[in-house]
Amino acid sequence: MQRTFFKQGAEAKLERCTFYGKPCLVKERFRKQYRHAVLDKSLTTQRIKSEVRAMLRCRTNGIKTPTIFMVDMETNSIYMEYVEPSITVREFIADVQQNQAGDCPLLALAEQIGQIIGKAHQSNIIHGDLTTSNMLLAQKFQGDAQSTEKFTPADILQKNIQDLEVVLIDFGLTALEGTPEDKGVDLYVLERALLSTHPNTDHVFEAILMSYKKNNPRGAAEVVKKLDEVRLRGRKRTMVG
């Protein structure tokens, strides 16, 4: 298997290869030299397990994630589908903002994001690292020849947002069986990541929240209440020099 370097993430090395003819991404959690060996081993094992479990649970609940091909606990590697063609939501928002394409595409995207997170939380999946880099936009699967057309990432940007779907990736910090508190923190992490990466997107987060409430009708009220509490804790916590 010929492996080529793809990306150096914060906690893992990503390489590309083909797995029985399919485009594959290998996520290898290498040993972090800065942390104690016992802690490193325990975090790595725990995160690989919860990552794989969460991706499986997502797929059974109608949330798109890459397909897992294989897990190798010896080398701490997960072999998964390489979603192509795709761009990150981060690239998408930056592109929309740069071209001053208006709020429509952003609000349509927010609707989709809210839907996915709503569904995930309803199924007790806490992603734990919701950022715009951890969401991909890919062509919606049509089940016909059209979907096998080869696009480049640039083509994706030209597509109507309705023809694209959000694929959730990087479940390295995921927890299953979450309390409203955990879900609130999950949303808080997204809010902070969104606002710090993309200036002037307060209304986009509001739209995500609206859609979230629609898609998680049973739990949303309590989660949003917790979100407000967490916001308060973060922003108004007594900060002593």
Partner: peptide, 29 residues
């Protein structure tokens, strides 16, 4: 990182933006 604060900060567009921070007590505390 201090007795009262724990923040990861980066500068962008005339603001020191807080990317990560403690959600309860500071590490020094």
């Amino acid at each position: 990182v201090s007795g009262g604060n724990t923040q990861v900060i980066a500068y962008s567009e005339r603001c020191y933006r807080i990317f990560g921070e403690t959600i309860d007590i500071a590490v020094g505390n």
